[in-house]
Amino acid sequence: MSEKTNKEDKKKAYRLALSVIVALILVPAVIALGVAVWDDRKFYIVSLIIIIMSMVPFALRFESRKLRARELVVLAAMIAIGVAARAAFYMTPQFKPAVAVAIITGIAFGCESGFIAGAMIAFVSNFIFGQGSWTPWQMEAMGILGFLGGILFHKRDGSLPKLLPLCVFGGLGTLIIYGLIVDTSTVITTQSVITWEKLTAAYVSGFGPNIVHAAATVIFLLILAKPLLGKLNRVRVKYGLLE
């Protein structure tokens, strides 16, 4: 037993070291390299590398966690529900329930699975909507929202969160976090010289769609949060899941 916990501790320390290396050494190194070597497109390549690197710890952690089959498949089902929900609203641009589903998954499964669910919903649904240079940014943005949903509202006993703070978080999170990340990515992808004027122009022109997106998230959280979490709780009680 002690040997096992020892091994676990070693693994944890290893992962922590990896995260520290990524955060403190690799990211600044990439930024420095970008400033020194790439003239034209440094914003694009640096931001892309940082975004991909920020997903690596989550992926590694998910791989090493040795989830039970049940948790894995129910998580996959939640991601599939998110993808199907986004696909069902293909006719209404920006008015999509995917972020709400990512946040709810984070609440039910915890922050790490929330990140994986958000990123995966963005990735898989882009097989329907089209992959593009925006895919990594969307994955990151939705992953962060799922992650924050888990951090703020995940309860071990599975009790439901209060709706008001949840909706405030969902609306503001979609408007600010998702909106900022995706609008910044538009500027970074299409322009090489980044100025505040360009960024402001992108944020201003993106404000309308972002408001619609945020409203959609709030509405879908209102409609979906209780029933979906209730259903997950039911499955948990019925089959002894996630304990």
Binding site: E63, L72, I79, I116, M120, V124
Partner: peptide, 11 residues
């Protein structure tokens, strides 16, 4: 990344 790929294919 076998676990994530498994989730991906199940989705």
């Amino acid at each position: 990344i076998p676990t994530l790929s498994l989730v991906f294919s199940m989705v």
